[in-house]
Design a protein around this nucleic acid. Structure first.
Length: 589
RNA sequence: GGUCGCAUAGCUCAGCUGGAUAGAGCAACUGCCUUCUAAGCAGUAGGUCUCAAGUUCGAAUCUUGAUGCGAUCACCA
């Protein structure tokens, strides 16, 4: 498109004797109802042309048509100059697309860390974590494809009072249960005891309230919570028995998480454990004090005053010298940077922590950390149920493992209804159900812009038709079917340039050619939804082409080959795009 | 109450740095499988882009205010 910018700038020079820079010009895609593929809006420039919009557009149109082979024709409607580019030009564009490196941007020498998942080790993963994991994974893949070197990091929240609750409940009521003895996945077993703790704790609170205590008092004085707090202290003191119980239960949880991660197809390059990092940040507090960024209150607690920035005063160290949440995050941020020296660091964390990250980044900036400007909080909306928020203690969560299983089951039912895979081997069927079920789930979660909140109704199953993952997978399988029937090695065949193109072919080529642009902007915005929408548009455009033109039945061998090649590169691009969302594409379905 | 985010068809969502008559999917209704996979294609119907002012040739998009929903404002994480 650059040639058009140049030519239009030159047109202003030649026709109107006025300077318009290429940067000022913007071209957009012509709306479907009009003829042409590219539109130049002249309204903003009539003050340079000193002519009516129509007249200006007509003059530029004529200029372009007479000088550029690529411009076959034009039409003017009001101030819109619609350009019809030649079929030969679109064939050139297509040849660009067939280059082997199409869709992978060259390395930009930048390193970026994407932290996502960050689970608590006291309960299994749920739908909220799934959104987090898929977003993080996808953003990481998008950045890789856009030329970054990416480190996927997971910060495991494996310590603290909540872990002690599960441990205590297991100790008291567990009767030595293990994942092996119960057949439960490790994270589910530990989660079970987290719930059991809460049940007993609530009973104790009720008993205390009946004895005349207030709610507040009861919550603080219940024997179980006191015991859990004591256990936390023992843990921090390195008590052997507590540590060994902690290790045992964490091992169960990690095994369980790993299973869920691999079912989801997400992975990590680097794990950080809070049990290792929770003491970090103490030297940053000292640094802040000596730099005068932090100040101390009479009771000894350390604060930062962010009121000039429109925020509040924030505590960074308690009066008793212990850290708070943000302290260890300051330390961990430093640790990550020291480990990798990356230019950007992205935290994929829910929007409930918007304020926390605003404060965190601001503090690091005030401390003069050169790398603070590369920090970014990729904030995503909560996943809500029709009944409201998911609450693990109340059991109103959509469990990750259950949901994955249900999706496969639904995929199986829908596929069997269609009866197209009856002759498949059992293993291929199972794999197909997995791909389709997960494809539907992943697409459902990723097609929506991250910051928007998401409503999930367990009673309504996720669609398999229309703007969905399976639709795109189906399109891919359909193309593969055509290609395998053709039985040609397309990569080694030189195609002859077609003289003319059909409308659906031009549409397809134009869409395909946009892929690198979409990829770039998706990487800039950390937005997988842009990729999802592109894949959908591409699949739709292919289906339209498929329905209007025949491929294998055409007489002329050259045309057949061209259409096969077009199909082939559509499939490749669909595959690339969906791969960025972590969605696998079946060869047949 | 302060701050931040969101608001587009009955439902779920697109809408690029302001541009043409605001687009898809689901749900509803009509057509299209003796022809390359009908999880598809084509069509009908469905809108005060929450409301009000402003900026301008032009606003769903930018500004301000209002309303509604959500989050957050812990010596919790």
């Amino acid at each position: 498109m650059k040639f058009l910018h140049q030519a239009i700038a030159k047109a202003f020079q030649d026709i109107f004797d006025t300077q318009v820079t290429e940067e000022q010009l913007s071209l957009e895609q012509t709306k479907k109802e009009f003829e042409g593929q590219v539109t130049f809006v002249v309204f903003p420039f009539i003050r340079y042309t000193k002519k009516s919009p129509e007249e200006s557009a007509r003059l530029i149109g004529e200029y372009l048509k007479s000088r550029l082979n690529e411009v076959a024709d034009f039409n003017v409607i009001k101030g819109f100059l619609n350009l019809v580019l030649s079929d030969s030009y679109w064939v050139d564009v297509f040849l660009e697309i067939t280059r082997p490196d199409f869709g992978q941007l060259p390395s930009n020498g930048q390193k970026v860390m994407v932290e996502y998942s960050s689970p608590n080790t006291n309960k299994p993963l749920h739908l909220g974590h799934i959104r987090n994991n898929l977003l993080g994974y996808s953003v990481a893949e998008i950045l890789k494809s856009a030329g970054y070197e990416v480190i996927k990091a997971n910060l495991v929240n494996d310590r603290g009072i909540h872990i002690c609750k599960s441990m205590l409940a297991w100790q008291k009521f567990g009767n030595g249960e293990t994942p092996e003895s119960t057949g439960l996945k490790g994270d589910h077993l530990v989660g079970k005891y987290y719930v059991i703790f809460d049940q007993h704790y609530k009973k104790e609170i009720e008993a205390l309230k009946a004895a005349g205590k207030t709610e507040e008092e009861a919550k603080k004085q219940a024997p179980l919570i006191l015991e859990a707090q004591e256990m936390l202290q023992q843990w921090e003191a390195g008590d052997e028995e507590v540590i060994s119980l902690w290790k045992k239960m964490n091992t169960w949880v990690y095994a369980g998480f790993q299973e869920t991660y691999s079912a989801l197809g997400v992975d990590f390059d680097q794990y950080y454990y809070e049990s290792n990092t929770y003491l970090l940040g103490k030297d940053i507090v000292e640094e802040g004090l000596s730099k005068g960024v932090f100040f101390q209150k009479p009771d000894g607690s350390v604060w930062i005053d962010l009121t000039p920035d429109g925020l509040d005063e924030k505590l960074v160290r308690r009066a008793d010298g212990t850290s708070v949440y943000i302290t260890q995050d300051l330390g961990t941020a430093q640790l990550k940077y020291d480990d990798f020296k990356m230019q950007q660091s992205i935290y994929v964390v829910g929007n409930e922590q918007d304020y926390h990250f605003k404060v965190l980044f601001l503090i690091l900036e005030k401390l003069g950390k050169s790398w603070a400007k590369g920090l970014y909080h990729l904030s995503y909306g909560m996943v809500d149920l029709p009944s409201g928020k998911m609450k693990s203690r109340e059991g109103t969560v959509v469990d990750a493992d259950d949901l994955i299983e249900e999706m496969k089951q639904t995929a199986k039912e829908k596929t069997e209804e269609l009866g197209k895979v009856d002759h498949f081997e059992e293993a291929e069927k199972e794999n197909l159900y997995r791909m389709i079920g997960l494809g539907a789930l992943k697409y459902f979660l990723l097609k929506v812009e991250p910051k928007k909140r998401l409503l999930f109704d367990p009673k309504e199953s996720i669609d398999f038709q229309g703007n969905t993952g399976p639709f795109i997978q189906y399109t891919h399988a359909r193309i593969q079917s055509v290609l395998s029937k053709a039985d040609k090695d397309l990569s080694s065949i030189e195609i002859k340039r077609p003289e003319t193109l059909k409308e659906t072919e031009v549409e397809l080529i134009q869409l395909l050619s946009k892929y690198p642009v979409i990829l770039t902007s998706a990487a800039e915005d950390y937005n997988p939804a842009a990729i999802a929408n592109f894949a959908y548009d591409l699949a739709k455009a292919y289906n339209k082409f498929y329905q209007t033109e025949s491929i294998l039945k055409v007489e002329e061998e050259d045309l057949k080959l061209f259409r096969l090649k077009l199909s082939h590169h559509t499939a490749l691009t669909l595959n690339k795009a969906m791969h960025l969302l972590g969605i696998e594409m079946p060869e047949r379905m």
